[in-house]
């Protein structure tokens, strides 16, 4: 079970959280082309490596936040708030949870 560090509550077990998929996907307005809309809906990076992803502390504070996780190892590189820029993963190499 993953150990996830909610930026508001601290490290908690994975069962307290719900997964929110890839982060930093901007929802476009209805004025975009159909292709752009389809890409927003369905196209994801499927990263092998460090992925920015969303989590919600559903059974805690209820807040959404972002995390950088290495999908090969499940190692978390960083946790950060919604709206923050994606941190540089390499700087935190070897530090995760």
């Amino acid at each position: 079970m993953l150990l996830i560090e909610c930026p508001y509550c601290g490290p908690r077990a994975e069962i307290e959280f719900s997964y929110g998929g890839e982060a930093h996907i901007d929802r476009p307005g209805p004025e975009v082309s159909e292709e752009e809309w389809a890409s927003f809906l369905y196209l994801r990076e499927n990263t092998k490596g460090v992925l920015a992803e969303r989590w919600r502390h559903a059974h805690g504070c209820g807040r959404f936040f972002n995390a950088l996780r290495d999908t090969r190892t499940d190692e978390f590189k960083a946790f950060y708030e919604m709206g923050e820029k994606r941190p540089d993963a390499e700087k935190k190499e070897g530090e995760g949870a």
């Binding site: 929110g20 807040r63 959404f64 919604m82």
Partner: peptide
């Protein structure tokens, strides 16, 4: 509720 929170917190701050 989760979907409402999602849009409220992440899209419509």
């Amino acid at each position: 509720l989760n979907m409402m929170e999602d849009y409220l917190q992440t899209e419509w701050a």
